[in-house]
Write a protein that binds this DNA or RNA. Structure first.
Lengths: 197, 197
DNA sequence: GTATGTTGTAAGTGGATACTTACGTAACGG
DNA sequence: CCGTTACGTAAGTATCCACTTACAACATAC
């Protein structure tokens, strides 16, 4: 009887813009007025698509994680024989670390960590990220290495820490690009292998 | 001619309270009204001690870093012979990780990273933290190991990442206390040793 | 004692901000 | 073609917050 609901399409259209705004400005400074302006609409248009600002932020985190996950999955599928999948991931991130601004969204979220919804979104995101890396470690080491789930999980957290500190030190201008590449590439391989037995 | 200026004492008295407030609430949500209430004074009393809210935050970061640094220095001085200083630090942090809330202040600061003053304070803090750890690594490995400054610096960043991710995953409830201890203790030792040669 | 500067109390201000309401318009289905 | 519903624009509101101002009480140096 009336115009068909195109809310989903519009959400998909605005999400990259919202994600970029939150990544650039942080949660508080990304005001709803600013968000609307960047989307080239009025504020209430955004409020028709999401119940509140928090929901926009949570959706942005989801969106950016999906983007990263797709890139990694593609990287794993396009199997070159020169290196193991895990090493290919490391080499890729050595050069493209955080290109979607995922970490800046995480930083923005961490300062709102007391909010249950934001906390939940971060938990989910970190949980999936960690699980993905842990699987890569298990695959890399192979069944005969005797690596326990526990050991792989801990090594995976260390790798996540590597990515996090690489982003922080880059944001603060405390590390050069070659150092960052060595940090991820070399230290990443060290963590990948583990302590040998 | 008048009352002597006791500003320094008062700043010292308020700083721990401010640091705790910023750590608990984050930068934006720690309003000046809240800060004043926790210090049991009016807002303008704080504004007589610091020019603005940013200066209070920067001072809080300094304060908390000093606290942590003093604890570590004491730990190094009280030399037990059972383990190397670096290992003692790791073991200590395995149990007392982030007890002064330094990381929560860092998270609060990271979302305000575009502000030059806050960025500067974080830079300084991270720089000194990293330098301290790097020195521990150099001392641990010894001159005969052939470890370059570069290698020690990169390993030190990895250790900082370990602490960072340990705090994040703890905040998000994604890691248990024993796992955290192994993450810092075991993986910390792996990074301390490096790749063997 | 008194001039001088410090400390405490109380109230306020200007601006920002998340979110809402009201209303005109246009597109689709029957 | 017409009723229903989505969509766009504009204005508004209530609240919050960093920071200020005005002023009284008080302690010290001389």
């Amino acid at each position: 009887m009336a115009k068909p609901d195109q809310s989903d399409e519009r959400r998909g259209q605005f999400l990259p813009i919202l994600a970029r705004a939150f990544a650039e400005l942080g949660y508080r400074r990304a005001t709803t007025a600013e968000l609307a302006q960047r989307c080239d609409v009025r504020e209430n248009v955004l409020y028709r698509l999401w119940p509140d600002k928090k929901a926009m932020f949570v959706a942005a985190i989801e969106h950016v994680y999906q983007l990263s996950a797709e890139v990694w999955a593609k990287l794993l599928r396009e199997g070159e024989t020169t290196a193991s999948p895990a090493e290919r991931l490391l080499d890729y991130e050595s050069d493209h670390l955080g290109e979607f601004g995922l970490y800046r969204l995480v930083f923005a979220g961490l300062s709102e960590i007391d909010d249950p919804q934001i906390r939940g979104a971060l938990r989910k995101m970190y949980g999936r990220f960690h699980k993905f890396i842990r699987q890569q470690i298990v695959d890399y080491r192979g069944a005969e290495s005797g690596t326990t789930e526990q050991e792989a999980a801990i090594a995976a957290w260390a790798v996540v820490g590597l990515g996090t500190v690489a982003n922080i030190s880059r944001e603060l201008g405390l590390i050069t690009a070659p150092q960052r590449r060595r940090l991820i590439g070399d230290t990443g391989r060290l963590l990948l292998k583990g302590n040998g037995e």
